[in-house]
Simulated assay, not measured.
Amino acid sequence: MEAAQEARRRRIRELGPWFHNLHLPDGMQTLPAHPLGGDFPRFKWRQIAPHLPADLQGWRVLDVGCNAGFYSFELARRGARVTALDVDPHYLAQARWAAGELGLADRIDFRQGQVYDLAGEAGHFDLVWFMGVFYHLRYPLLALDLLARRTARLMVFQTLTMPDDAGAPVGDTADCAIDARERLLAPGWPRMAFIEERLAGDPTNWWAPNAAAVEAMLRSSGLQVQARPGHEIWLCTPHADADATRALWQPQHDSLLGAAARGPA
């Protein structure tokens, strides 16, 4: 037993650094002293879990930016078949190892790639898990559009936000006269800050929307907010009029994606 634990402890060190604190079957943890405080991301899962079906048998799940696999594991435990996507082979190595330790490897397909790769793929997922990725993307609304189109039942969305939750949106935000643009500065108007260099020392932090902008972008992608389980977390379902909403931008969207796939002329 001690030899097995020491081997596991050594493997955790070899696979480091970790961002997800995973609880292994023998009680060992991958990052018990997390810099974000608490037991991350378990404390976020506890906020979201009551809003999800306890039985996900027959559900197909897409976990975008799966990191070391914490959420994929929790969803697989509920019976889902999970496709777990991440761009970083370091995190995927952690996730594949941990899946074996947890006995969940046969329920999860780990894939290296980025969210934009989904543009060339067909099919839908019952649940799209889109947490901790949006603000790291150079083209965030394109990614949200791609994922919203593939969401059959639920999307769990989370993003870094800017501290601008003061009050509800000011009046009707559906239009703004060109000579009344001061309204765009009103507290609660949907807006998103662009981060040119770094936020928290991270050059991949590109955007910080306010809560009103998050909900407006979700609506514009054909989703409707059903709940806010925790800070910066939204639970969404496809809107009944999603096709009509997407018709406003879908032709341009598909044209741009087709041009990108073809490459330079």
Rank of each mutant, 00 (worst) to 15 (best):
M1K: 12
E2P: 12
A7C: 08
R10T: 14
I12R: 01
G16L: 06
G16Y: 04
P17G: 00
P25I: 13
D39E: 00
R42S: 12
F43P: 02
W59D: 07
G65Q: 00
N67V: 11
A68C: 10
F70H: 06
S72H: 04
F73P: 04
R78V: 14
G79L: 07
G79T: 05
R81W: 03
V82K: 03
V82M: 04
L85N: 04
D86S: 10
V87W: 01
V87E: 14
L92G: 05
Q94W: 05
A95Y: 00
G103C: 11
A105C: 02
D109K: 09
Q112M: 07
G113K: 02
E121I: 00
E121P: 07
F130K: 04
G132L: 02
F134N: 03
R138W: 10
P140C: 01
R149M: 14
R149V: 00
R150Q: 09
A152F: 02
F157S: 02
T161F: 02
T161D: 06
P169R: 09
A177W: 11
A177Y: 04
E182W: 07
L184A: 10
W189T: 15
P190V: 05
R198V: 15
L199T: 05
G201H: 05
T204D: 08
W207N: 03
P209G: 06
A211T: 13
A212P: 13
E215P: 11
S220F: 10
Q224L: 12
H231E: 15
W234R: 06
T237I: 14
T237P: 03
T237A: 15
A242N: 04
D243K: 03
R246T: 01
Q252S: 15
D254E: 13
L257G: 01
A260W: 11
A261Q: 14
R262P: 05
A265H: 11
